[in-house]
């Protein structure tokens, strides 16, 4: 362990940073695309099922295949990896946003509309705050997926902790395999914990502190 850190400490930091960067970027894209679409779908229910079906289908493409598919379009490196992971992050966020919004008590939306809130005001002031915990749960789930699958991104030259794991597999070096996978697990746990904090923060208060 000590020797591993002595030998690879610098690299470990770099790879962890790459890993985090790829994951965070994909997740960020996933959030800014999937949340608005999920919200819009509640205003266009007839097409909601179709959109959801497409997102589910994307989710079923094997991760390796999706990454490989990126190469003809984006070459190799971080960008194709980010695009592929972004596609993976979409479904959980999209589904939770849509369901969370759809599950807001209709009486509340009716009351909001009846009092004279515009559609937009109803979304911003009522529906999104009420759906926030569910949306956040979707984002947390996506974050965990993305961090785990980002390890595969090394396969198309995106770097990240996957480099250790693949090297270890090629060289039959357990220390490299563990040195790559343990940080991935720790990273996933920390990010999940942080997003959990964020989830609590965005969950609207319904009682006095």
């Amino acid at each position: 362990m000590i020797t591993f850190l002595q030998n690879y400490g610098g690299q470990l930091l770099l790879k962890t940073w790459q890993h985090l960067y790829i994951s965070a970027f994909s997740l960020f894209l996933g959030v800014i695309v999937a949340v608005p679409i999920g919200i819009l779908l509640t205003r266009a229910k007839p097409i909601a099922n179709t959109v959801m079906a497409i997102a589910s289908m994307l989710q079923t493409i094997p991760a390796m295949a999706l990454l490989a598919l990126m190469i003809p379009f984006f070459g190799i490196g971080a960008i194709p990896a980010i695009v592929a992971l972004f596609i993976y992050s979409l479904l959980p966020i999209l589904r939770n946003t849509y369901l969370g919004m759809k599950d807001v008590e209709p009486a509340l939306i009716d009351a909001a509309k009846g009092m004279g809130l515009t559609n937009w005001q109803s979304i911003i002031k009522v529906e999104v705050p009420m759906a926030a915990p569910v949306i956040m749960a979707g984002i947390r789930l996506s974050a965990t997926y993305v961090i785990a699958w980002a390890a595969l991104a090394s396969y198309i030259g995106a770097g990240g902790l996957g480099d250790f794991i693949f090297n270890g597999l090629n060289l039959y070096r357990t220390d490299l395999i563990l040195g790559g996978s343990i940080p991935v697990i720790i990273l996933a746990l920390i990010v999940d914990w942080l997003l959990g904090k964020l989830e609590a923060a965005v969950t609207p208060k319904t009682t006095q502190s």
Binding site: A111, K205, T206
Partner: peptide, 20 residues
């Protein structure tokens, strides 16, 4: 309609207070 509704009070059975 939005302007109209702001000048008409509206109360429903399920109370409809915003919990947050």
């Amino acid at each position: 309609p939005v302007k109209l509704r702001r000048q008409i009070g509206y109360v429903i059975q399920n109370i409809g207070l915003m919990p947050h």
